[in-house]
Design a protein around this nucleic acid. Structure first.
Length: 462
DNA sequence: AAAAAAC
């Protein structure tokens, strides 16, 4: 399977090729032809599966025909956090470079002026967080009646954040005959309801079981006490050769304190959390990507979706109270089949939270992937659902009009394109265009500059 | 228990 087989334009294929990709990930192979045929889609996939490109690529081709009109964007992408929205915008830049496309990034925390100006000129795609979008809409700056393509990304996260009423209200402002793509890592009932209400006859695509930890991430737990937590972390950071790490904490205040403490210890540390103004958030992330700092202390604002290349370690300074968050956090490392190490600091009070995580992932944290088999073994725990069929015979074609088929039935290990290949995990510094572990790979998500010591030059292949 | 998101 090759990108060229998916029905994309030459310009787009060139841009994709420039980025060093040749083979689509399973979700891309399944979604792209359908999106091009204007079908609705429900994609069950986490970030890191190549999900973003699965809608960005076909959208660029769809939008390259036709013209935008003032205040009437032609498509809309909704994202839960500002950083994710920015990340998607970067994808449009990267893959749309040979086509002319206008876009506006509508997120809070920044001046409205430029956003309004862009809207007035007319844009092909709007990438937005719900709050700012609603705000601008209420101010009469946006008409959504010409918006024929809607993407709801990270729907379950939107649910967590209480955005569903906003999403519903936005959906109702769009033309009824639009195309809608909904992506979610899980399908809790409210999301199911939402999709029943706002999607018509969607094609279901599921590429990875939600809430499984990737086999290439070595998970460790370190028992400690609340009092000695900080010194424990510092010891590990010093003794283990930690190249690049994201340190997650449950509280914004802890993030702040910890960043200070690490700096005092001489670490090149920075922070990202929601109490910082947007410019600082952006700047800190950039410093991390640039390699100016190598330790990013973060709240869960950075837990999902953010993909900075080459993060060697993830620390849970606090055990997350929702087991889902654990999976998302550790997914910031070990991408693309590279090895990653996730270290969780646990105090006795965290016992229950740890148990819940182990229940969810079906593996003991302490022993990580050690007690089982090496990552490249035949059947790692965190195997992708084998039902996702990258081969997709010709049923990428329109004939398939089954509604709500929750394709649970088949579990034929097909061609194995989506089961872990034999190849050994690639070193973290390697670029990859071929996910070994679809649960957490994805160079496609983040497109910004990368710490030079973390990544090979783009386009470099093994 | 927290975090995120508009002004």
């Amino acid at each position: 399977m090759n990108f060229a087989d998916l029905g994309l334009s030459d310009e787009l294929l060139r841009a994709v090729g420039d980025s060093g990709y040749t083979e689509p990930t399973p979700i891309q192979a399944q979604a792209i032809p359908s999106v091009l045929m204007m079908k609705d889609i429900i994609g069950i996939a986490q970030t890191g599966t190549g999900k973003t490109a699965s809608f960005v690529l076909p959208m660029i081709d769809i939008l390259s025909h036709g013209r935008s009109r003032a205040r009437m964007p032609r498509s809309l992408i909704l994202e839960p956090t500002r950083e994710l929205a920015a990340q998607v915008a970067e994808n449009f830049d990267k893959y749309g470079k040979y086509q002319k496309l206008s876009m506006a990034l509508l997120i809070g925390g920044v001046q409205m002026g430029d956003q309004v100006k862009a809207l007035e000129k007319g844009v092909d795609v709007l990438i937005a967080t719900p709050g700012r979008l609603m705000d601008l809409f209420d101010r009469g700056k946006i008409l959504l009646s010409g918006c024929n393509l809607l993407v709801i990304d990270e729907a379950d996260r939107m649910l967590d954040m209480g955005f569903i009423p906003d999403i519903e209200s936005i959906c109702q402002k769009l033309p009824a005959n639009r195309q809608t793509l909904l992506f979610s890592a899980t399908m809790p009932p409210p999301i199911k309801k939402l999709s029943d209400k706002f999607l018509s006859n969607p094609k279901h695509i599921e590429v990875a079981r939600p809430a499984t930890a990737a086999a290439n991430i070595e998970q460790r737990i370190v028992r400690t006490s609340p009092r000695s937590k900080k010194s424990t972390l510092i010891d590990i950071l010093k003794n283990e050769k930690v190249e690049t790490a994201i340190v997650f904490s449950n509280r914004k205040t802890t993030v702040r304190d910890l960043e200070q403490a690490l700096k005092r210890e001489g670490f090149r540390a920075g922070q990202i959390q929601g109490d910082m103004d947007q410019s600082s958030r952006t700047a800190e992330l950039q410093r991390f990507k640039d390699g100016e700092i190598n330790i990013l202390v973060a709240s869960d604002v950075a837990a999902r979706g953010l993909d900075v290349k080459g993060v060697s370690h993830v620390f849970n300074y606090d055990v997350p109270w929702h087991p889902d968050d654990y999976v998302h956090r550790i997914g910031r490392t070990g991408r693309a089949g590279a090895k990653g190490i996730a270290i969780t600091l646990a105090t006795p009070a965290d016992d229950e939270a740890v148990e819940n995580i182990e229940k969810l992932t079906g593996q003991k944290i302490g022993s990580g992937s050690k007690d089982a088999k090496p990552p490249e073994a035949e059947k790692p725990q965190a195997e992708v659902k084998s039902e996702a069929q990258p081969e997709a015979k010709s049923d990428a074609k329109p004939d398939r009009e089954k509604p709500a088929r929750r394709g649970r039935g088949r579990s034929k290990p097909t061609e194995a394109a989506n089961t872990a290949p034999k190849s050994p995990p690639k070193p973290a510094a390697r670029r990859n265009e071929q996910p070994d572990a679809p649960v957490v790979d994805a160079d496609d998500e983040w497109n910004g500059p990368v710490p030079s010591f973390l990544s090979a030059s783009p386009g470099t292949k093994d």
